[in-house]
């Protein structure tokens, strides 16, 4: 077993892990931060995206021991300090950017990474950036609208039956 200490959403957290323990497993099972979802476990779907030292990565394809000492942000860290939804989260709600919600943590984390490097993306850039995040409910349109809205750009009103 290896001792791992990471800073998660601003708090220092430690635990003992096996070599094979994935970051996603460590976050969910040991730190009980179950907002990070594991969809495919083969690094295809993007539901497990978290930020490691500010970069979006797939937590199911990173070893916990390999990020010892890193700063991690998960979906739990995206809310405001008072517990209300953060800007991107609120935009997902306002624009109906989720249905079942399974992919949403990864979508929000990818959106946050995009807006950090490209604060005013075009719709095409948003769609391209989401190539590693799969949603099987929404057809993506309202996710894209939510991210455009979160970036402060105008979008058409949400439509329920797109």
């Amino acid at each position: 077993m290896t001792s791992v200490t990471i800073t998660v959403n601003g708090q220092s957290r430690s635990g003992d892990v096996e070599g094979r323990t994935l970051l996603s497993t460590f976050l969910r099972d040991q730190l009980t931060l179950t907002g990070t979802h594991v969809g495919c476990d083969t690094s295809q779907c993007g539901a497990c995206v978290v930020h490691v030292d500010g970069e979006a990565v797939k937590a199911c394809s990173v070893l916990a021991a390999d990020v010892d000492g890193a700063e991690i942000t998960t979906i739990e860290g995206m809310a405001n300090a008072d517990g209300s939804l953060g800007v991107i989260q609120q935009a997902f709600q306002d624009h109906h950017g989720l249905q079942c919600g399974f992919c949403t943590p990864g979508m929000v984390m990818s959106a946050a990474a995009l807006l950090k490097e490209n604060p005013k993306p075009t719709e095409a850039e948003v769609r391209h950036y989401l190539e590693g995040n799969i949603c099987r409910c929404t057809g993506y349109h309202n996710i894209v609208k939510a991210i455009m809205a979160a970036s402060g750009q105008d979008v058409a009103p949400p439509m329920a039956a797109e």
Partner: peptide, 9 residues
């Protein structure tokens, strides 16, 4: 290559 999260790692 891959997608943004893969390219970061």
């Amino acid at each position: 290559i891959g997608d943004p999260a893969v390219r970061n790692r």
